[in-house]
């Protein structure tokens, strides 16, 4: 079933075309990556999908409903964790529930239930600045999950982390995603990350940004980091690198 569908999205700023006629879709429970070099309009597309920007043309459908230019429908996560420094980790994670009108107490209880599973136990009463980068991204992801109604948009969620932390967070993410149902669209420029995490990859090339290719990743699941060394993985990676350099 198609959860999210964007059709013929075009955006231009001051007469300069940023993205052109982009159509993508995200099926229920699917993890799809949007892979592109910087300047290919990834973030612009992301802002259109999340409803923060209105496209010059095209429509965004969520569960068949037109949500073009409507924010508050999809949860998103950025490279910056955006944890509020003045709230504890628990209150940060519970924030979407509180904003949606739940009582503080019930919101906290609901949020606290997930801490163990998301590997965040013991951080409830800490403040964000007391956590490591990896833990902060975990908390931000849990908040995104609680904010979502089935779809999450992740804009380079792990790209600010150092390589070692990133590897650990990837494994953590794969483990989490086995258990929860969250259709996710990940914007990234990291080819390894895209292959490792996704069911499908769109290749975005610019400028203006267009979808130049779509690749299914049929590697068996559950996956883990050892996949990065296998022949299948490297074959796929070579194929993608060729497509990107050809498109770019």
């Amino acid at each position: 079933m198609e959860k999210l569908k964007a059709s013929n999205i075009s955006v231009c700023f001051d007469g300069v075309s940023i993205i052109e006629d982009i159509s993508i879709h995200l099926n229920e429970g699917e993890i799809v990556s949007l892979l592109g070099v910087s300047g290919s309009g990834k973030t612009t597309l992301f802002n259109v999908l999340s409803g923060l920007n209105v496209p010059n043309s095209g429509r965004v459908l969520l569960d068949g409903e037109d949500v073009t230019g409507k924010s508050g429908k999809m949860s998103y996560m950025l490279q910056k964790d955006l944890l509020l420094p003045h709230y504890t980790v628990l209150d940060n994670v519970a924030l979407p529930l509180i904003v949606k009108g739940e009582k503080k107490k019930t919101a906290r209880e609901k949020a606290a239930e997930h801490f163990r599973f998301f590997g965040l136990e013991g951080t409830e009463k800490k403040y964000p600045h007391q956590l490591s980068g990896g833990m902060r991204q975990r908390a931000a992801f849990l908040r995104t999950y609680l904010a979502s109604e089935g779809v999450a948009l992740l804009d380079e969620p792990f790209s600010a982390l150092d390589t070692i932390t990133k590897t650990a967070v990837h494994q953590w993410y794969l483990d989490i995603m086995k258990e929860i149902k969250l259709s996710s669209l990940i914007v990234t420029h990291d080819i390894d990350e895209a292959i490792l995490l996704s069911d499908r990859i769109y290749i975005l090339s610019g400028k203006p940004g267009r979808i130049s290719d779509e690749i299914s990743i049929d590697l068996p699941k559950p996956r883990n980091n050892s996949l990065l060394m296998t022949d299948e993985f490297l074959t796929l990676k070579r194929k993608i690198v060729e497509k990107i350099s050809f498109a770019g």
Partner: peptide, 21 residues
């Protein structure tokens, strides 16, 4: 931070919630 404001907006929060949080 405008990104934080957008975040609360993405959760469906209006001006009051943005102010409050």
């Amino acid at each position: 931070d405008p990104d934080s404001i957008n975040l609360v907006r993405s959760m469906g929060g209006g001006n009051f919630k943005i102010f409050r949080h």
